[in-house]
Each structure stands twice: as C-alpha cells, then as structure tokens.
Design a protein around this nucleic acid. Structure first.
Lengths: 174, 174
DNA sequence: CGTGGCTTTGATCTCTGTCAATCGCGGTGG
DNA sequence: CCACCGCGATTGACAGAGATCAAAGCCACG
C-alpha cells in the first residue's frame, strides 16, 4: 500500500510477527533487511539506532496518513492528479517541456495503489491527457506539462518538499 | 483520521512544523502534550525515550496501514462491519447477549472516519440491523450479537488482539 | 505471422453521494 | 405541563462515479 524509491527505508509495519507483508519490485532492486528481533536489546540501549528508527517510523506515519486522506476523500480524478504530481516530484526529471517521468507500473498496480481499478485509471488518464496537463508518451512514460496546475487539481496537503524525500538521519527534528 | 481510546499515545504525525492537526474529543478527556522540539537532544541521547517513541510510531504505522486497506478496498458494508467489530474489541463490554458498545460518535463522525457520508452510514446500519448481527439500542449504543459473524463480513486482517491494544512500553519485541 | 499480456474503449449496472423531506428526542420558555 | 424549537438520525428520490463484463487494439516475442 505504499511506494518507495531508491534509498528509502521501507515498511516498518512489516516488523510484526504475524503480519503478512507483500513486497514487489518494479525494477532491479536490492534490499537490506534489518531484523530487529535478532538484537532486541540494542533497540532499548542504542540511542542513535532508536532515534533513527523513530524517525523512519514517524516519516512513514506521515506518508501513510497523507495517503489515507487521498483514499478517503478524493475522487478518481483527484487521486490520479495527486499520484502523477507525486511521482513527478519523486522520480521525475526536469526537462525543457516540464517533468519527464518513467513509471514502471502497470495500470493495475496504479489502480491498486489508488484504490481504483485498472479500467478507471486508464479512463482518467485519458481525461487528463485531454486536459493537456500531461502528455502520455507510452504506457509507462509521461510528461507533466504544467505541474503547478496538475497539483492544484489534487486538494491534498502535498507531503512533498525536502523533508518528505531524502532518508538521511533525523535532524534532531522539530 | 484515527481513533484513540483512553491511555493511547496519539498522533505522532502531528510532530511536524507545518502539519495541520485536528483533535476532537468525544467525551471528557485530558491529554498531555510532549513537545519533542523542546528537548531535541534528548531524543538522540535517551535510548529508552527513543525506543518508546519508535514503538509508538510503529504501532501507529500498523494502525494507519490497516485503515488504508479499509478505505482502499472495502465497500460500505464491509467498512461498517469492520468498524463495528473494531469498536466492540476496543471499547465494548462483554454481556450475556454479546458485546455492548457505547459509541459517543455522530453518524457524521463515523462516516468521516470510514470515508463515507452520514446518510450512507445510517442506511448501512439499517441493513446490519436487519441482518440481526447487531442490535441498535439507540443512536449511540449497540449490541453485537454475533461478533464472529460480524467480523467475518469485513475481509481485512484484524489488527486486534492484545498487541494492538494497550500502550505499555515496548516489550523488546521480536 | 500468430499468440499472449496489457491497455484502451464501450455498455451496463450498482453503489454511494447529494438534495430534500420527515421523524425523534431533548431542551427551553410560556 | 405542554407547545415549540433545533439538532441529529432516518428515509426517499435521483444523479453520477466507478466497478464489472466484454470486446477490441497494441505491441513484444517466439
């Protein structure tokens, strides 16, 4: 139910015994598992580790909570616009015409993520295309022509910006 | 977007500068705010505190993630059944006929929580009533007659049981 | 060139949201 | 004590969004 990019620490939610976890890689990926159960003591004793874990979990709370709003209150078009902007911020590259995004996800994957179904996503993509805000180059590549306008169609507090990206250690936050 | 009960530590998601937080109390409540920004250093240095914070945030991740599934994949009836069972586990009291629950929430509050609207919730409550699984004593009180059957109508991994409740310190989890 | 998987498009149906009327109940003032 | 008022819950009618089912269309691959 959540999407991660390179360098992200993911899914602290998995850290429970009976939890059924599902991971799917959309491109070549390598991941490093940290089994906290292997060193139970270090969690309680190593302050730096605990602080980092807290930071990670806390970021995940913010991320998932934002997604909760997306699923609970936005309609299809809004969810898709949110998704497209979100991906542009996260994995898009700036090009003269706007933001180019390569999205190695099937329509079904996207639908799943957005709480819709594949056909609906396809249709909404069609509508977005007609609106000229986004140009679809192929099923897996698109170009955001006007990211401001696109974002404004998704009435949700964008969890973007530097603090949502990057997974550097906690900067003694507040 | 989340519901807390007595003793819960809530909403680590609030801990961000620009975050807009909304708290609503449904009954007499007192809460204690811990401003982490006031003692930035202690987070990085106090292992026990950091571990506890991690534990809290981590539980929140699990909770919100479960809710994500509820909003993303379940239809109205399923959401409501999930909600009713969930509340029964959390604040219900066992009585001869089943589980008695006092719910100090308006239909609108419930709808909001479930990503529906008040009228729909009301209608679905009506359907649940007809199914005899639940007896509605008043708008704010109901009796779950068959909690197993009710739960089975919500195809979602129930985050219940001891480990989801209680907010005691982290038991050097595994 | 044929096949299989994914996407797009179309037709149709169901569920939920919206708008509006009514009901039930507790509180207030006469 | 009772009529009145107002808020929330319920119920109904209706429209719209999205799901489902089905039929192409596209494209890579053998």
């Amino acid at each position: 139910m959540s999407l991660s990019g390179p360098g992200d620490t993911l899914c602290p939610a998995a850290a429970l015994q009976g939890a059924d976890v599902w991971l799917e890689a959309f491109s070549a990926a390598s991941l490093c598992e940290l089994d906290l159960s292997a060193h139970p003591r270090s969690i309680g004793e190593n302050a730096a580790l605990s602080a980092e874990l807290f930071h990670i979990a806390h970021r995940q709370v913010r991320y998932v909570s934002a997604h909760l709003v997306t699923l609970g209150r936005l309609d299809g078009m809004e969810r898709v616009c949110f998704f497209l902007t979100d991906m542009a911020w996260r994995i898009g590259v700036k090009v003269p015409g706007g933001w180019r995004v390569h999205l190695p996800l099937s329509r079904e994957d996207i639908a799943d993520y957005l709480g819709l179904n594949a056909e609906t996503v396809s249709r909404i993509f069609g509508r977005v295309k007609k609106s000229k805000l986004v140009t679809f180059l192929s099923p897996t590549d698109y170009l955001v022509n006007d990211i401001e306008a696109l974002q404004s169609r998704a009435p949700v507090a964008a969890p973007h910006g530097p603090e949502m990206l990057g997974s550097t250690a906690m900067q003694a936050r507040p």
